[in-house]
């Protein structure tokens, strides 16, 4: 069964088309990267999933059912804009937020203790939220997101403000929840995190799905594999537009993107005539590259 189905959804605000013909299918036990530049329509999409705003057209199903209080109780949502009641005590706050998700106080008490221990925050249970550091508050909010063991977890930029240790902790919890069968929607601008964690992605731009599918497939389809070359000498051929579409000098090595119709073999032949090649390796395109390329292409297309 799919945790989330978005079926040809449209939403516009006044004269802005925020989301346009968006469709998604999210099976259980999958981490799904929802990507896109700022203002692409990610938050609008998430808000529609949470039934905060209603689509103009199209349907959204959670766990195969139309949106309702009951179904939404199985969703955990960590918004990008974080906020907690500053004057409440940590324990009371978590208990309140758990109750808002339908958890009984007797149930939440045990879980709050367990989660606070896991994040090493158990000494803070009777402290007011305003006494906590920003990072601690982030962790509290993350606990509130997963405390009711949701089957669909929506995380909007979950790592901002966390140190590397806690980032790893959150990452582990994400994988753990995935293995338990939860579906996770993960929205972020950190492409390397997406590459490490996500099974599938959807890249939206101007409210439209511009690239989606399984991460491996997306990379394969992108086609333009980069070449990593370590060498010594003056590589003039890199500036030959007929051979090389683009390249990036990383200092220790260059990342080369071949021009269209140029095979890797041709490129290698050209290279060894000019420089001493010590390493020549075909790399998968980075998601970063794919993101930038795809969004740029659309922009230029739009201008024409």
């Amino acid at each position: 069964m799919s945790a989330l189905t978005i079926d040809h959804v449209y939403k516009s605000f006044k004269d802005v088309q925020a989301v346009q013909d968006l469709s998604m299918e999210l099976p259980e036990g999958v981490i799904f990267g929802l990507l896109g530049p700022n203002g692409a329509g990610k938050t609008t999409t998430i808000r529609m999933i949470m039934d905060i705003i209603i689509p103009d057209k199209g349907k959204i199903f959670l766990m195969g059912k139309p949106n309702s209080q009951q179904v939404r109780d199985q969703v955990g949502y960590l918004p990008e804009e974080r906020g907690l009641y500053r004057k409440m005590k940590v324990g009371e706050l978590l208990s309140f937020l758990a109750e808002m998700k339908g958890l009984k106080p007797s149930q939440s008490k045990v879980r709050i203790k367990m989660w606070l221990e896991r994040f090493e925050l158990n000494d803070w249970i009777n402290k007011k939220v305003e006494e906590l550091s920003r990072g601690m508050q982030q962790k509290i909010q993350f606990i509130a997101t997963v405390i009711h063991e949701p089957r669909l977890i929506i995380l909007d930029e979950p790592f901002t403000g966390l140190d590397p240790i806690n980032t790893d902790l959150v990452k582990n919890i994400m994988l753990e929840q995935k293995n338990k069968g939860a579906a996770i929607i993960f929205s972020t601008h950190l492409m390397d995190q997406v590459e490490k964690l996500c099974d599938s992605i959807c890249l939206i731009n101007d409210g439209k799905d511009v690239l989606s599918g399984e991460l491996r497939q997306v990379k394969k389809n992108f086609g333009k594999n980069a070449i990593r070359m370590e060498y010594e000498g003056a590589a003039k051929f890199l500036n030959n537009q007929k051979l090389v579409r683009n390249y990036k000098d990383h200092g220790n090595f260059v990342e080369i993107y071949a021009a269209e119709k140029i095979t890797i073999k041709q490129l290698l032949q050209e290279a060894i005539t000019e420089v001493d090649v010590s390493k020549f390796e075909i790399m998968e395109p980075s998601l970063h590259e794919i993101f930038v390329e795809t969004v740029k292409k659309k922009k230029n297309g739009g201008k024409k």
């Binding site: 039934d51 905060i52 949502y77 918004p79 804009e81 906020g83 907690l84 009641y85 808002m100 509130a144």
Partner: peptide
């Protein structure tokens, strides 16, 4: 202003 509302409104 504290953005707590975002979480609340997703629960009710």
């Amino acid at each position: 202003l504290s953005r707590v509302v975002e979480v609340l409104i997703s629960s009710c």
